[in-house]
Design a protein around this nucleic acid. Structure first.
Length: 888
RNA sequence: GGACGUAUAGCUCAGCUGGUUAGAGCGUCACAUUGACAUUGUGAAGGUCGGAGGUUCGAGUCCCCCUAUGUCCACCA
């Protein structure tokens, strides 16, 4: 290969590298942990299941953060000798996808799903889902995601459907799934029920009306929904309320807005005496709270609003057939006409809407399938069971299982504060409505024939059975995701080896929807926690902190960023500068700043590769000069720190540590020293080795963050693929003396700039500096530095006293420079003296603390030891500084 | 109504269990520059760490109160 072919281009061009690199990874097969090198040594699994993106469209920045972080986790662990499995997939996202496709259908063809019929419509949805899936897969590849495509899953494919049917049947068998007639959240717009979690609250204003049902009714009530009052069966008051106590237990027949009501006065402690009139009109069929109250008082239930959002026949002659809005007006007018309206006040109120469709939620009683979270059952240990703390046969509830997994720390949530949120949610959890009246999704595995009902994994034998037309909440199948993707209910090798998964990485916004449901399903069905750790990332917001949305036009598209700045820069911008659980603001400037860094790394490598004699693998390096020793020591320190940070999932800290080392220590400092060291025959060869050694390590350390550019550069060494290279280990510590001496060197170099300015020495002229025992330079080493840009200097050890130090310009007349110009002795002295005084004060204060009887009595042994260690350290420092001052 | 965040340089944010002189990136300003890199280098300016109080030898860090701001949960009819 000729030099011109070998030479890297001047600037890094991601577009030219990325797709080709991804293809090479795919060809290598290393995304599949079964194909990793040294498989026999890789005894430990590291598993992440990808939170499956919805097949509703394209990936956004939230997905990009997820992919960047998870890929970094996987690559780090793969390089660390684990069998790293990252299992990809997509989510059918039932309601979201169905409504999107129907919306498109209406827009483009003017027909709805019913016009097409179930089968034809589902075909359309599947087609859309497939296209969306392909887009998503392509985007994931662009991000560099090292997922094992051979294990890809879909929440609605055959295997997952089998898992869903099995799970449903088992839960039904244990009495944990039941069919019940209960008040649920009906979404009139989407024409389906939704779970409590899918209801959002929008603050708005509403009118609250105070009125009496009739002239002779003794109690006034207040409501924001007068139209529902035609379905009232009771008025509830607080049992302590002296105003109403005399009426409790009485029943009244009233004619109210065209309906005949039978109102019983009941006493219930949940009624707030101070709100409104202190009396509550109970509408059992159209309010969750009222329905609970009705159950406790065995009240009747009158359904006055239908699924179409219109008033039913039972609502009475006046309003039947009207929409709820129309009926409200009708009832209010009726109240006015009959002089029953006592007050009309504007209040702020939360409006319940369906998260997906935006439809206003109408509580209605309906036959639905529920998961009972409070029902006691005997815990069954399976062959896979590894969860501790719950015995086979022990009576538990699903709630208890969910609590136990986190309370016992078999699942750790990061940041920890979300554990509290998690527990709070479980405490308030009600039975989970899992059936939906939509077509796209897993069909409820229940069949009917006349009065017979059959629940099972497969359809029952015999003629005439008809399957339940409802489908399951999409989160039911997502709840099985960690194990259904590994083969459950079959006890596969994958399931045995890779489950529980190591980390679940996802956004905090789906803690309840998904994370909690996975815990429920996995602990119950598998007897294992689904994951050992939960890492929750924040949301990506725009530069002014707003949510990114199409309507605001502030969406930053990951693909655009990748095209403009490269996938590596995009990934870095999402991983550095944020902390888990906190939202992060992203601007294009930030991405471009990291693009500059990828280019810097490219040029560092370009310099090293072009300037060394032999490009070879260096597994060990030894420093001869001070800069050598410093860079090697720093590298070890950085390897240690970065490894620790990555183990704790502190990506931002790891990235910043690395960036500082790469840019400041390696590029700006060492590379400059190396340039001149390489001119010295006795140093050249070793300097090459160190350059290569540090670069090879730097590329490895950066690989989890920037897989593309590092892999491309690593190619130059001909050492195989970086993706399976071994993670670096620290060689030797950075000696304090080396670090301190180097620090002084930095100071002298800075001073030399002044010398040049003072004596007008151009940078093209070289300066030799001879000095000894100057300032704090205590090193016995012969330090040779020839710095091109900062001042070409040679430091040579002599016996000369500091004040006799000379500087000469080579090739020119020798000039003498007093040491004071090189090192500002006065300033140095003042500074050191100040440090000395502070250090002394610190020692005194520590001694005082340690001598304090109160402190000794109250502090733990650990704290005392720590203080004592600090004291010893501080004393040492005082001595050192004293020596320095004496030398000056 | 309840819970949980956040408040540190002009901007975006780090700062682990309290420890000596509070950091980075971007931005600003000055200077440099012909072979690794202008997607550059050297340096400078810029902070009473939201406010008041407390614990401590010592507080950005711990405790109490307050202010601003954000999110989630519950929902009052």
């Amino acid at each position: 290969m000729s030099d011109s072919e070998k030479e890297l281009s001047k600037a890094y061009d991601p577009a030219w590298v990325e797709d080709a690199t991804y293809l090479k990874w795919l060809e290598s097969g290393f995304f599949n942990p079964d194909n990793l090198p040294n498989l026999e040594k890789r005894t430990e699994p590291f598993t992440i299941v990808l939170p499956p993106p919805n097949v509703t469209g394209t990936l956004h920045m939230g997905h990009a953060v997820m992919l960047a972080i998870e890929d970094a986790m996987i690559r780090f662990n793969r390089m660390n000798g684990k069998r790293a499995l990252w299992l990809p997939g997509t989510d059918h996202a039932a309601i979201a996808t169905e409504s999107k496709v129907e919306k498109l259908l209406i827009e483009k063809e003017g027909i709805n799903r019913h016009d097409l019929g179930r089968e034809a419509f589902l075909e359309r949805v599947n087609q859309f889902a497939q296209e969306s899936h392909d887009t998503i897969v392509n985007q994931m590849k662009k991000m560099g995601a090292s997922v094992d495509w051979s294990r890809e899953a879909y929440t609605l494919d055959e295997e997952r459907n089998f898992a869903v049917r099995t799970a449903f049947t088992q839960m039904y068998g244990d009495g944990l799934i039941y069919k019940g007639h209960r008040v649920i959240n009906w979404d009139p717009k989407g024409q389906t029920t939704v779970s409590d979690e899918e209801v959002e609250y929008i603050e708005g204003t509403a009118k609250m009306y105070t009125f009496k049902y009739s002239q002779d009714f003794p109690i006034s009530i207040a409501t924001t929904r007068p139209e529902t009052k035609v379905g009232d069966t009771a008025v509830a008051v607080n049992p302590e309320d002296p105003r109403y106590i005399e009426f409790v237990g009485k029943e009244y027949q009233v004619e109210f807005a065209g309906a005949n009501l039978n109102i019983k006065i009941i006493a219930d402690p949940n009624v707030d005496q101070t709100f409104g009139t202190g009396a509550l009109g109970v509408t059992p069929a159209h309010s969750m709270v009222d329905s609970d109250m009705a159950r406790n008082h065995t009240l009747g239930m009158v359904v006055v609003i239908g699924k179409d959002g219109r008033m039913t026949k039972e609502a009475g002659t006046l309003v039947a057939g009207q929409t709820t809005i129309e009926a409200r007006e009708t009832v209010v007018n009726w109240l006015r006409e009959n002089n029953l309206l006592e007050a009309e006040v504007e209040i702020t109120q939360n409006l319940s809407v369906a998260q997906r469709s935006g439809g206003v939620i109408e509580p209605l009683p309906m036959d639905q399938w529920f998961i009972d979270v409070n029902k006691e059952f005997a815990f069954k240990a399976t062959g896979l069971n590894t969860m501790t703390g719950i015995q086979n046969g022990e009576m538990v509830t699903l709630k208890k299982l969910m609590q136990h997994a986190v309370k016992s720390e078999q699942i750790k949530i990061l940041p920890e504060r979300f554990s509290k949120t998690y527990f709070h949610w479980i405490d308030n959890l009600r039975d989970w409505n899992i059936s939906r009246q939509i077509w796209f999704g897993h069909r409820v595995p229940v069949w009917y024939r006349g009065d017979d009902m059959y629940v099972g994994v497969e359809a029952p034998e015999g003629e005439g059975w008809e399957q339940d037309s409802d489908t399951l909440d999409t989160w039911f199948s997502s709840g099985l995701w960690t194990f259904s993707t590994l083969g459950w209910p079959k006890e596969t090798d994958d399931l045995n080896f890779y489950h529980p998964t190591s980390v679940l990485e996802t956004g905090y916004d789906i803690l309840f929807f998904w994370v909690a449901r996975m815990v429920l399903m996995s602990t119950y069905l598998v007897g294992q926690v689904p994951f050992k750790e939960v890492y929750l990332h924040g949301l990506v917001r725009d530069e002014s902190g707003r949510k990114m949305s199409k309507s605001l036009g502030n969406v930053i598209d990951p693909l655009t960023m990748i095209e403009k700045y490269g996938a590596d820069a995009t990934r870095l911008s999402l991983m550095i500068g944020g902390t888990p659980g906190n939202d992060m603001k992203l601007s294009e400037d930030k991405v471009s700043a990291f693009r500059n860094f990828t280019n810097k790394l490219w040029n560092i490598s370009r310099f090293v590769l072009m300037s060394v004699q032999n490009v070879e693998e260096i597994t060990e390096a030894d420093g001869k000069t001070l800069p050598d020793k410093y860079i090697l020591g720093r590298l070890s320190e950085v390897i240690k720190k970065v490894t620790e940070h990555l183990e704790k999932h502190e990506f931002s800290l790891a990235g910043e540590t690395l960036r500082e080392f790469t840019w400041n220590n390696f590029a700006d400092e060492y590379l400059e020293f190396a340039k001149t060291q390489k001119r010295s025959p006795e140093l050249a060869e070793n300097t090459d080795k160190i350059l290569l050694y540090v670069l090879q390590n730097v590329l490895k350390l950066w690989h989890p963050f920037m897989p593309f550019v590092t892999e491309e550069l690593y190619k130059e060494f001909g050492l195989g693929m970086l993706i399976v290279a071994e993670w670096p280990k620290p060689l030797r510590e950075l000696e304090t003396e080396v670090a301190e001496t180097f620090e002084v060197l930095r100071g002298i170099i800075a001073q030399l700039r002044n010398v040049r300015a003072t004596y007008n020495i151009p940078y093209s002229k070289k300066i030799d500096v001879i000095l000894v025992n100057a300032g704090a330079v205590q090193s016995e080493e012969k330090i040779i530095i020839d710095q091109v840009k900062l001042g070409e200097v040679t430091f040579v050890e002599t016996d000369t006293k500091p004040e006799q130090v000379t500087t000469r310009v080579v090739g020119q007349t020798t000039i003498h420079v007093p040491l004071a110009d090189l090192v500002d002795l006065e300033a140095e002295k003042t500074k050191t003296e100040k440090e000395f005084a502070e250090a002394k004060a610190y020692v005194l204060s520590l001694e005082k603390t340690l001598g304090n009887a109160g402190f000794r009595a109250n502090a733990s042994a650990e704290v005392i030891t720590q203080r004592e260690a600090s004291l010893a350290e501080a004393k040492e420092r005082v001595l050192k500084l004293e020596a320095v001052i004496n030398n000056l």
